[in-house]
């Protein structure tokens, strides 16, 4: 068993066209959903819904198209590093953006 998973990690997993087509279909549906959601005013939920859909799409791409599900170890580490770096960027920008008016002089 262990031997086989080792073998898989080295040779690489071959994803079937069916999986790809389903994933691609899901992406199109989610895109349609994004567009649809833009026409419905959900108040404060607007951003949340848009982000959830976008996140799901990103996850599908990472798991299926980037083979995130089948690779192991260092490759996954590299993928996570990208996310951490993105978080870092967003954190830094938000530090600025959300706090910019703290020091506003009264007008």
């Amino acid at each position: 068993m262990a031997k086989q998973s080792n073998h898989e990690a080295h040779v690489g997993h071959v994803t079937s066209p069916t999986t790809y087509l389903i994933a691609a279909g899901a992406l199109f549906v989610l895109t349609a959903l994004t567009v649809g959601a833009a026409f419905v005013d959900l108040g404060p939920l607007n951003d949340l819904v848009a982000l959830l859909i976008a996140g799901t799409k990103a996850a599908i791409i990472i798991v299926v198209f980037m083979h995130g599900r089948y690779t192991s170890g260092i490759t996954r580490l590299a993928m996570v590093a990208g996310l951490i770096w993105l978080a870092l960027l967003i954190l830094g920008v938000m530090d600025d953006y959300l706090t910019r008016d703290w020091l506003m002089t009264p007008s």
Partner: peptide, 18 residues
């Protein structure tokens, strides 16, 4: 090098505390 970028923005309208 990923943690210093705002030193290019010291003179901008960025929140000064940063």
């Amino acid at each position: 090098s990923f943690l210093v970028w705002a030193h290019h923005m010291f003179a901008s309208a960025m929140f000064p505390w940063l």
